[in-house]
Measured scan of single mutants.
Amino acid sequence: MQRVNMIMAESPGLITICLLGYLLSAECTVFLDHENANKILNRPKRYNSGKLEEFVQGNLERECMEEKCSFEEAREVFENTERTTEFWKQYVDGDQCESNPCLNGGSCKDDINSYECWCPFGFEGKNCELDVTCNIKNGRCEQFCKNSADNKVVCSCTEGYRLAENQKSCEPAVPFPCGRVSVSQTSKLTRAETVFPDVDYVNSTEAETILDNITQSTQSFNDFTRVVGGEDAKPGQFPWQVVLNGKVDAFCGGSIVNEKWIVTAAHCVETGVKITVVAGEHNIEETEHTEQKRNVIRIIPHHNYNAAINKYNHDIALLELDEPLVLNSYVTPICIADKEYTNIFLKFGSGYVSGWGRVFHKGRSALVLQYLRVPLVDRATCLRSTKFTIYNNMFCAGFHEGGRDSCQGDSGGPHVTEVEGTSFLTGIISWGEECAMKGKYGIYTKVSRYVNWIKEKTKLT
């Protein structure tokens, strides 16, 4: 034993070699072989497995989906700052455009905790909710729209109204504003409101030439003092309507412009014939205590009207009353817009006519005020429907199939267009061939041609 100890002390290297040989010859039971080890760690190889990531292109799944990435790591994937920024906006807080917040056709661009709407022409605001041009839906104005110097929408209202708090709607500024039905039992019968379409306001006024200088022999019209197929109006439903009495009662109609003036057809009036105007009328054979009678003290036909040349060209006249009318729910003026808007309103496509005229061709006159909704007829169809001249200051309205029309005794009465609950004068009943005849239409004086003249002559002093 002493000898062994001496050998170990003198030859430590020998001992180490012996131990190493023993270990190498022993069977290893701690580690699995290569094949079995792979069965336990069965993990798919990654895209760049075996390579240094710093030297390969980034992978979106590896960089940002398996674990949260930084902007720089995302930049490695896209290799483009702009594309990385677009991805980053949604990656950080989701897609803010998912709810489609942009209105009126706006395009949404996502941002971090926010979004941006790219608005089409005519709109602005956070969600493109603000109209900035009158060309689109009248700028959301209830009545009139004008573009300011910086191309912003400025709404306005006709006389007797003021802008509401929203700067879009119009509200009454006087007790009985024009064009409004205020009798409670008839307010439910107000005709369907007309909503502004998209309009090209630059070209809204037709490029028409008034044929002022045409000389033409007097034409022989049949029954051209021209509501057939209409309905009984309720008291106060058309408070701007008046009836004219002269040699015979209810020979023509008219509309209240203001307390002192009536507008009617020029062919209705004769110099030297006494005319009485009755406002607030409903049943011409009954006294309903809503009527107001006034005498006409002055007749002003349009300066281009000449019955000797043509009885229905420039067929418009103004009547001055001896005493002002007292405005109330049964006696209310009709609204008159400017030339541009009167023309736009007419193009809405349908209007209402009213009167006490004959209820059928050569038949009896109506006792109760009649009204009828009539569609506008395109000019080409209008011209083809008659052998008589249709001037540019006239328009056609009615039904091709016949059966409904204005008729004798309705002449001078109103053709009105309702705009968001307020009625505007767009025409004056003038003439036609018979009444409600198939293929024939009622012919009306186009008020847009005469609004400046009306307003100039009827100013209240």
Score class of each variant (00 low, 15 high):
2 Q>F: 09
4 V>H: 13
6 M>S: 11
6 M>A: 14
7 I>N: 14
7 I>G: 15
8 M>T: 14
9 A>E: 06
14 L>A: 07
15 I>S: 04
21 G>Q: 05
24 L>R: 03
31 F>H: 06
32 L>W: 12
33 D>I: 07
36 N>W: 05
37 A>N: 14
39 K>G: 12
42 N>G: 05
45 K>T: 06
55 F>D: 10
55 F>P: 15
57 Q>H: 12
60 L>G: 15
61 E>Y: 07
65 M>P: 14
69 C>E: 04
87 F>N: 15
93 D>W: 05
102 C>M: 00
104 N>P: 00
106 G>K: 00
107 S>H: 08
111 D>F: 11
119 C>G: 00
123 F>Y: 10
125 G>N: 00
133 T>S: 14
140 R>F: 09
142 E>L: 04
158 T>F: 03
160 G>V: 01
161 Y>E: 01
168 K>R: 11
170 C>V: 00
174 V>F: 04
175 P>C: 04
178 C>G: 01
178 C>N: 01
180 R>W: 05
181 V>D: 05
184 S>L: 15
186 T>A: 14
190 T>C: 05
196 F>A: 15
197 P>H: 12
197 P>S: 11
207 A>D: 08
207 A>T: 14
209 T>K: 08
210 I>M: 09
214 I>F: 08
218 T>N: 14
218 T>D: 07
223 D>R: 10
224 F>T: 14
228 V>P: 06
232 D>F: 08
234 K>T: 15
243 V>Q: 07
243 V>N: 05
244 L>C: 02
245 N>G: 06
247 K>H: 10
256 I>H: 00
257 V>S: 00
257 V>Y: 03
273 V>T: 13
275 I>F: 11
285 E>C: 06
286 E>G: 09
289 H>P: 12
290 T>C: 05
294 R>Q: 02
295 N>R: 14
306 N>E: 05
310 N>V: 03
314 H>A: 06
319 L>N: 01
320 E>M: 04
324 P>Y: 03
324 P>R: 05
326 V>A: 10
329 S>N: 14
335 C>F: 01
336 I>Y: 02
346 L>G: 02
351 G>F: 01
375 P>T: 12
384 R>D: 08
384 R>T: 13
385 S>V: 12
387 K>Y: 05
396 C>P: 01
413 G>S: 14
413 G>F: 04
419 V>N: 05
423 S>R: 09
426 T>F: 01
434 E>K: 14
434 E>R: 05
439 G>N: 08
444 Y>P: 00
447 V>G: 01
449 R>C: 14
452 N>E: 07
454 I>D: 00
454 I>S: 01
457 K>Q: 08
458 T>E: 01
